[in-house]
Nucleic acid binder design. Sequence first.
DNA 1: GACTGGCACTCCGCCACCGAGAGTGCCAGC
DNA 2: GCTGGCACTCTCGGTGGCGGAGTGCCAGTC
Lengths: 338, 338
Amino acid sequence: MLDDRKLTILRAIVTDYVSMREPVGSRALVERYHLDVSPATVRNDMAVLEEEGYITQPHTSAGRIPTDKGYRLFVDRLGAVKPLSGAERRAIETFMAGALDIDDVVRRTVRLLAQITQQVAIVQYPIVYGASIRHIEIVTLNADRGLLILVSSTGKVDQHIVDLGGAPESAVADLRGRLNTALMGLSPAKAVERATSVLDELPADLRALGTVMIAALLELVTTDPSTRVVVGGVPNLTRFSDQFETTVRPVLEALEEQVVLLRLLGEVGIAGDVTVRIGHENPYEPLRATSVVASAYGNSPDAWATLGIVGPTRMDYPSTMAAVRAVARYVGRFLAEG
Amino acid sequence: MLDDRKLTILRAIVTDYVSMREPVGSRALVERYHLDVSPATVRNDMAVLEEEGYITQPHTSAGRIPTDKGYRLFVDRLGAVKPLSGAERRAIETFMAGALDIDDVVRRTVRLLAQITQQVAIVQYPIVYGASIRHIEIVTLNADRGLLILVSSTGKVDQHIVDLGGAPESAVADLRGRLNTALMGLSPAKAVERATSVLDELPADLRALGTVMIAALLELVTTDPSTRVVVGGVPNLTRFSDQFETTVRPVLEALEEQVVLLRLLGEVGIAGDVTVRIGHENPYEPLRATSVVASAYGNSPDAWATLGIVGPTRMDYPSTMAAVRAVARYVGRFLAEG
DNA sequence: GACTGGCACTCCGCCACCGAGAGTGCCAGC
DNA sequence: GCTGGCACTCTCGGTGGCGGAGTGCCAGTC
């Protein structure tokens, strides 16, 4: 159905439309891409492509623009991988060098990604599957309030305010010791399991405090795990002021909701493979005029999460995909090395 | 120079322009505000107001709009304080109820502020001046890396990755003990002072580890203090799509830079007083078409910081100021109560 | 059968033009 | 000091004409 020339034409339409931002016509196509046929022939092919749903016309007697389906075919079969420029490679190296801790890595990653792709970047905090509990601390702030602090083997620190109910310092110290010996080195899942039996073994006078504490611990372990997402490069949206209602507003609204962002990043493939969701393929309806390019990152089983960018469907997919992949790989290595 | 009627007219122009979003003319003014004079008289007054720089015309034969100077006078002398609606009061109560920890309070505050004012909200993390060091913990992650954790009396937890250089667990425990006894209960400033003398008292075998650790401690205490800022309500910007270049783009760019945000919030008065910076009064040049309404919050010396909103100069100052003040007060009380 | 040149047609974008409407400044008069 | 009247200016919406870009189709050619 689609012979080579038609595919070439589709590829040309996509590249041209992305760079020129205008519907592309048959004459321009033959001239710019040295197709050795006449405009009329190209028109015939375009008619077929349109019939098949790969391209469309904004109005009669305008050039053609790709549909979501057209972009999809382009991404799947036509886009040549565009290698990163030297400057981009250097940017990646220098951006990440000297990162301090997890927070810093994530912050730098999001900036980097936004800068290279010139789009809005989203980075999810690494999920620490293989992590184990390294230390549990209970700090009393005053007679009533204390702080439960949980340190994981990956260096992540979570805290939760707890009500001590006026328990004496000795009781707190006792409980801390019990919790540490019981839970140290366990995975979160195992810790949850074990925690309830710890509760049963507690002497009566620690029972009340222990219940509160383990509830807090449970909440830390279950709810928190890196549902956190960081966003950057929002001003890049201003490049699309002509698509205010279809792109700028919906993206700004999506960025406000962590839940939406997580859904957007969700269901990406294995690390190293870039997933592209084009227009209506997005799970979040208002973003039907934008595309998401995402990838998992983190090559160790210890740290694994996703990152990506959001932009108008009319974007330079080869470059963007290359950039997302490169950043994902680099950050993955960086995390693995420590 | 400016008699009562002229002031009334200026007030009317500001209120009308803010609500109608159109230059306001003499006839409309007389009708809507029951001024007992003719349009011609109003015109004469307007001519004076224009000469004095309080209002201006977008073009000849258009109505007048306020200048920054006009808004300034309005805010200083003319704006009647608009009490919050019942719904707004209830929103404040319910939004904050059930906040878990400092992070949660800040997150809720920013949402609340954005929702009530319908503008972009900015909240700075509380600076803990009166805070003292409550606990210092050192957790070893592996042979080389450890985590220094600092808990303050306000429940804030900071951490920093440190290089243990293969020091034995006993040395780490020893150092932890020394640091805790030496620094517990001290204010950050005092702790910095004291830390260097702790270093001198260390036995030779702890010297290397101690140096690393105290450097990390110093960095935590000095650099970190709540230069963090949280932003919310960005989609509210889309209400001003007609002012894309003057409002939307510059604000998005400002939001990307923590430094800029801190400067914007900077130099506000004492808690409870709302500071308004109109247009060119802003320290950040690109925001010359927008205003900042900010207030300090936190009525205890323990926790003190600023919050505010950014929006177009054409905003409802009385309502916005009332909302900012109300939220600042409420959050202040909330923090003080614990 | 595939490609091409030619041609009629459509639609957009631009510009000029016009009239209505809103608002002003100014002036003479009360 | 205020007012009614008047001429003037400028914006805004609608209309019409025109060039250009691009298409679809058809008959003809290789």
